[in-house]
Amino acid sequence: MIAIIKYNAGNTKSVENAIRRIGFNSIVTDDISTIVAAKKVIFPGVGEASSAMSYLKKYQLDEVIRSLKQPVLGICLGQQLMCKHSEEGNTDCLGIFNTKVRLFPPKEIVPQMGWNNLQGMKGDLFKGICDEDNVYFVHSYYAELSEETSAACDYILPFSAAMQKNNFYATQFHPEKSASVGEKILKNFLEL
């Protein structure tokens, strides 16, 4: 069973729909025992970092997410919340990745909105994906490049388009909105 974590940030529906399209079933839930028992966990998110973190803490979901042993996929704000700290609302995040999240420099078009290509992909998530493939981004904050970067992207500056550490995977882009390339990446995750 695949659990999509329900909290105060985000449109879980797109993720649910995408998973159904590639032939899997999921459940949107904030029930801790269901999340812990799931085979795969997806941690999506569209929203603001500090209010999302306070919500996770209030319902002890922060501890739950950190302690998960099965493959976990953070998406967009999900990836940012898995980092150590975000400049958005000066927020201490989950600290799964030892990386900081920063605001794109001012005087440029922010958010980055649209399709951009991935570079230097590593790991099982990107099986069958090549450097020319584009995925869909919408974000004003980015995770810096680090040892945990599993794919980079360039917008104003190079940043972590995807990250991985042990069983924790994350993407800044939206695989659920990235046409067939995104579905392939989601499928790779679900088949881990």
């Binding site: 529906k13 797109s14 159904r20 399209r21 919408v138 909105k177 046409a179 067939s180 579905e183």
Partner: peptide, 8 residues
């Protein structure tokens, strides 16, 4: 639409 369409 949301069920069928995999782009924004």
């Amino acid at each position: 639409i949301a069920k069928e369409i995999n782009i924004p």
